[in-house]
């Protein structure tokens, strides 16, 4: 077999399944969203479902909420993740054994499904949850229901907490792996050239790990933006995040609503792609190097 053909042939079985199922579904969704192959029998091309989204207040509010939650969850996770990785990295200067258990602890949330974490958050923070009962038992709250509402709340605290809990360790592990790959000799060189620990971090370590972190945080952003199960459990009914709204409309008993629901889902994907593009542009300006895309 010619070397150039080898990767194509090797990947073909996977590519056929992916393109057939995913690409086929996407194409069918796209066609139905513009009025073709509709289940109701209507077969006239129209962009009316997309135009309608521009005046759909529920969609616009959901969009704003999704951007807000995804941005904040990514930013906080990035900040916490990088801080944890830095602490562990510099901690291991003192002795690797001291940080081994912290590193192990960091990996625990990675192994937990998002759904499980959402249930844990619900169990901890709901008005009848563990924290409210502890607060009541300690006399910090006059009654359990007086505990602040932190799930299914207006500020989406529960959703943010679940994602930060899950994604901050993920980004910390990514940052730590990349930091470990930066030779310690660079530290010695930088120190003898007059750099303090902070300057070393700011001018040597951060720029070297930043491209990888941009890629990883991009994945976090895109995931949270289109998330479904965590916002369903921990978010409010209105406004719901886009993933929940899309699913709700798609599951409508009235098949006439199906093209509009598909238009919403595809618009969501398009907006996510645009946001990723903006994120990459901004990141490249900050980092100065093309981030590694997954």
């Amino acid at each position: 077999m010619r070397p150039a053909l080898r990767p194509i042939v090797t990947l073909a079985p996977l590519a056929i399944v992916l393109l057939g199922l995913f690409g086929g579904g996407l194409l069918l969704g796209l066609l139905q969203s513009v009025g073709l192959f509709a289940l109701t029998g209507s077969d006239a091309f129209t962009l009316s479902h997309y135009r309608a989204l521009l005046n759909d207040r529920e969609f616009l509010v959901s969009l704003a909420l999704s951007v807000w939650v995804a941005s904040l969850a990514t930013a906080v996770s990035l900040l916490l993740g990088v801080t944890m990785a830095t602490a562990l990295h510099y901690g291991s200067f003192v002795g690797a054994s001291r940080t081994r258990w912290q590193r192990t602890l960091l990996q625990v949330p990675l192994a937990m499904p998002h759904l499980s974490l959402a249930l844990v958050v619900l169990h901890l923070l709901s008005p009848s949850g563990m924290l409210s009962r502890v607060a009541y038992a300690l006399g910090l709250a006059p009654e359990p229901s007086a505990f602040p509402v932190l799930v299914q709340d207006a500020a989406s605290v529960g959703i943010l907490l679940a994602y930060v809990w899950k994604e901050a360790p993920f980004l910390a592990v990514v940052a730590l792996t990349m930091l470990t790959r930066v030779s310690r000799d660079f530290d010695d060189a930088a120190r003898t050239l007059g750099a303090t620990r902070w300057q070393m971090w700011r001018r040597v370590h951060l720029p070297l790990v930043a491209p990888g972190l941009v890629s990883a945080s991009l994945a976090v952003f895109a995931y949270v933006f289109g998330a479904y199960e965590v916002p369903l459990l921990l978010g409010r009914t209105y406004p719901a995040m886009l993933g929940v709204l899309a699913e709700r409309r798609f599951s409508s008993v009235d098949l006439i609503d199906r093209p509009a629901a598909l238009a919403l889902a595809l618009a969501m994907s398009l907006i996510a792609a645009m946001l990723v593009w903006v994120y990459l542009r901004l990141a490249r300006q900050l980092v100065g190097e093309r981030p590694v895309l997954f």
Binding site: F186, G194, V204
Partner: peptide, 15 residues
């Protein structure tokens, strides 16, 4: 970092 004694190593260690 306060000695002003830069070191050149076996590897150049350019950033």
């Amino acid at each position: 970092e306060r000695r002003r004694a830069p070191m050149v190593f076996q590897k150049a260690l350019l950033f």
